[in-house]
Design a protein around this nucleic acid. Structure first.
Ligand SMILES: [Mn+2]
Ligand SMILES: [Mn+2]
Ligand SMILES: [Zn+2]
Ligand SMILES: [Zn+2]
Lengths: 150, 150
DNA sequence: CAAGTTATTGCAACCGTTTGCGATTACTAA
DNA sequence: TTAGTAATCGCAAACGGTTGCAATAACTTG
């Protein structure tokens, strides 16, 4: 609950207005644990503030992302957001079968980034990366029920 | 021009119908070089067949993808398609500044895949992967014109 | 070649997300 | 406390992409 304070301070310092909509989206994200889909945020926020519009939710989340307050994660083909992890960056493995999202330490991608950098001069966007795939559990379930080779 | 034949044969063998729409989308993709955005394909195809609908283009491209005839690449937030490379898989580095796409040999990601596999049992989707970032040229241009630190 | 079957099409409606715009409201400064 | 202002809002329209459905047309069989 005190993490709000810091985010609010950030808003104010950068000259952004403190509107009820922004405060509600902020506390919605802060009270949920882990990633929230945009519609989850919208529905929860609308309960606290019935005039809330989906466009406002998107604009607010994008602003928060720009300010570093939240982090965007593409899960499946939907956008999700989470409060930025103060412990540091992390990536995700997202299961395309069960939609589960598992955190992944950045060191697993550090080497990949370095290689692209050195060999091609290419600086990849890997700040918060979600790699899609199939998790161990779903692979097993799939194997049992004859997923693709009966 | 002979690569059509193989794709057409594939369609026929799997019991799909040979419609003018499919043949036109196929030759459109085959005559363009490299990735084409969906709208590029649509506009070109519409010239050859004015009734062409965008939904048909999407359905056709998805069918071709399923058959292995074309490969889907997400560039920025738009879908692109290219004739499947008979020389083998490759990935892409896509520059978010100039939209340039550079091919990347699969071995750069092989290790990453193996690590996720061994450590987490996670099987990532990395068949045709596009990593976004900034290419060497654009980094330099950015540096000269004072991109982000004066 | 004609008729029947069914995959495929064009269209329109929809999805999640973004954007333009005129109305509202948070802030600033008297 | 009050205006003045510009940022922000709600709304509606648009975007790229997907989907349901009735009409069409590619194939099959004779
Ligand atoms: Mn995360
Ligand atoms: Mn390619
Ligand atoms: Zn799973
Ligand atoms: Zn570039």
């Amino acid at each position: 609950m005190i993490k709000h304070e810091k985010a609010i301070e950030t808003l104010r310092l950068k000259g952004h207005r403190l509107t009820p909509q922004r405060l509600i989206v902020l506390s919605t994200i802060a009270s949920g644990d882990g990633h929230m889909g945009v519609d989850e945020v919208f529905q929860a926020a609308k309960k606290a503030y019935p005039y809330m519009d989906i466009a406002t939710v998107y604009r607010t989340l994008h602003l928060f992302k720009e300010l570093g307050v939240v982090t965007e994660v593409a899960i499946g083909d939907r956008l999700h957001f989470e409060l930025t992890d103060p412990e540091g960056h992390h990536h995700h493995m997202v299961c395309r079968a069960c939609n589960g999202a598992f955190n992944l330490s950045p060191h697993y991608l550090a080497e990949f980034r370095e290689t692209l950098n050195k060999e091609f001069g290419f600086e990849p966007d890997l700040e918060h990366f979600a790699v899609s795939g199939v998790c161990a559990k779903c692979q097993e379930a799939d194997r049992k029920s004859g997923g693709n080779q009966g």
